[in-house]
Amino acid sequence: MNSRADQLKAFDRLLTIMDELREKCPWDKKQTLQSLRHLTIEETYELGDAILENDLNEVKKELGDVLLHIVFYSKIGSETNDFDIADVCHTICDKLVSRHPHIYGDVTVENEEDVKRNWENLKLKEGKKSVLEGVPNGLPALVKANRIQDKVSGVGFDWEKPEQVWEKVQEELSEFQNEVQDNNKAKMEAEFGDVMFSMVNYARFLDINPENALERTNKKFIRRFQYLEAKAKEMGKSLKDMTLEEMDVFWEEAKTFNQTS
């Protein structure tokens, strides 16, 4: 691994390149905070994919892309004298120090849950009106549900045992089925949302990240379906011309073709 001096030198190199690109490159010169936003979101998802695949070389590359965006935003901020990369670093450092009084102060904690409770309570003392203010509006619904539940848990609003949460799941499933039988679309959607929210909560109690779990299943389905498509192509057939029974043969093959899938 590189020494701290080499790490700082590499970061300085990135800052220098960013200065040069902002001055000389037509594309980089025209970028704004707003124009970069959607690209940053894409890069973050690409990083997430690399982490799920446990492709560490790709993780390294994607981290570089995300870091570039942080430096880019900071460069734009410096041009309007609002903030620069030093301000960004100092701001997060100051927050980390203030949010970890058990490291930089005289507070004693017993475990991770104590740390999380302290974190949320400190944010309220800093002026936050709600523990849920830190949940971005733009998060995908599944991720947002998990963050909401994690946040309120940090201030003690939570179930005590996983069994209680599972009972809630069963209750919500029953209510959903009742609305399905009545065929009331609006109420069906509302109850389905409750089912998903309770399942996310149950996953949290089991220490399962629901977003990761669902994305792994997405990837697994894609691999198996593409295997099915390849086999159909080998036979000179189109999937739409195959029966479900024919497709199921290859679907079962796909499960054993790659045990990691």
Rank of each mutant, 00 (worst) to 15 (best):
V200N: 04
R22Y: 15
E160W: 07
A50K: 05
L68D: 02
V131H: 02
P162A: 06
L139A: 07
R224L: 09
W251L: 05
G193N: 11
S3Y: 04
L142T: 08
V169H: 01
V152Y: 07
N57I: 03
V143N: 14
K240S: 07
K233I: 03
N218C: 06
K255D: 14
E171Q: 11
I41R: 13
K161F: 04
R13K: 04
M196N: 08
D248G: 06
L139R: 11
L8F: 09
V155Y: 06
M1D: 14
M1N: 09
Y73V: 02
V249C: 01
M188P: 00
I103R: 06
K255Q: 14
A190E: 15
K125A: 12
L124G: 13
D28L: 04
L15M: 11
E167D: 13
Q177W: 08
F197E: 07
D12S: 04
V195I: 10
T32Y: 01
L124T: 15
F197T: 13
E62R: 01
E113W: 15
M199H: 01
A141F: 11
N118A: 12
W27A: 03
I148N: 10
N2Q: 15
A213I: 02
K144E: 11
E160I: 11
Q34A: 13
W159N: 09
K128F: 15
N183C: 02
N111P: 14
N258G: 06
H90C: 10
D6R: 10
E189P: 02
Q170A: 03
D87T: 14
S198L: 04
L124I: 04
K125R: 13
E245N: 11
G48K: 03
E110N: 14
V152T: 06
D6A: 15
E110Q: 15
G154M: 07
E46T: 01
E253T: 07
Y104M: 03
K9N: 10
N218R: 13
I51N: 00
E189V: 12
N212A: 12
N146Q: 15
N201W: 12
V66C: 06
A145H: 08
N183E: 14
L244F: 13
Q181I: 09
N137H: 11
C93L: 11
L96F: 07
L56W: 01
T16N: 15
W166D: 14
L8R: 10
L33V: 11
D182V: 00
I92K: 08
T40E: 08
L67A: 11
R224A: 10
Q177C: 08
L244C: 14
